[in-house]
């Protein structure tokens, strides 16, 4: 009787040992799978972060080009370039436009706004994406600060230093696309 019970106990111990071993192996396999999944998730997360566009040569070039051409546009204010009208604004001068005297600063704001609205229409694109907003300022916004559209998303920035008789001012153009 004792021998039979002992045999039975040995058999059940043996079975339990087997089951435990199988469970350990499955557990080990699950750990490997989870490790690989975690590595894959981290990997794809990093890849997605790098996929965000960084500004490139073409993007800055467009903003800088536009600033340059704006500054060299010949206005109706004493037939001076827009960069010279900035100087008139600083000195508090006026412009005679179609017989009316208006402040050089007001005229400068109107012309810059008009140029930006016309040049940055729906057709203008950066990296095949339309420009949907802009922010333009001269001398950190002290002389001029205009913006339009949706000011969010990717940004391309251009700078232009306007030389004056005494010193200089900096114009910044932020294009949002």
């Amino acid at each position: 009787m004792k021998i039979k019970n002992k045999a039975k106990m040995d058999k059940s111990k043996h079975k339990a040992k087997h089951t435990r071993k199988a469970q350990q192996e499955i557990f080990g396999f699950v750990i490997i799978v989870m490790l690989i999944l975690v590595i894959a998730v981290i990997f794809f997360g990093l890849a997605l972060q790098r996929a965000i566009n960084n500004p490139t040569y073409e993007q800055y070039q467009k903003a800088n080009d536009l600033l340059f051409v704006m500054m060299h546009y010949t206005t109706d204010c004493k037939n001076k370039e827009l960069s010279r009208v900035i100087e008139l604004c600083i000195s508090g001068d006026t412009c005679k436009i179609e017989g009316n005297e208006i402040s050089a600063c007001d005229y400068m704001r109107d012309v810059f706004s008009e140029i930006l609205n016309v040049t940055l229409g729906n057709e203008t694109q950066l990296l095949n994406r339309p420009i949907h907003g802009y922010w333009f300022r001269i001398n950190d916004g002290e002389l001029l600060n205009i913006s339009a559209g949706n000011l969010s998303g990717n940004i391309a920035v251009g700078y232009y230093v306007v030389p004056l008789t005494e010193g200089s001012v900096t114009a910044e153009l932020w294009l949002y696309y």
Binding site: D65, V69, H72, Y73, T74, E81, T119
Partner: peptide, 20 residues
């Protein structure tokens, strides 16, 4: 496309530059 200044000589106003 790229922006450029487009200048021509005008006999009344002298050198005149537009945006192109």
């Amino acid at each position: 496309s790229s922006f450029a200044v487009l200048c021509h000589y005008d006999m009344f106003t002298g050198n005149r530059c537009d945006i192109a």
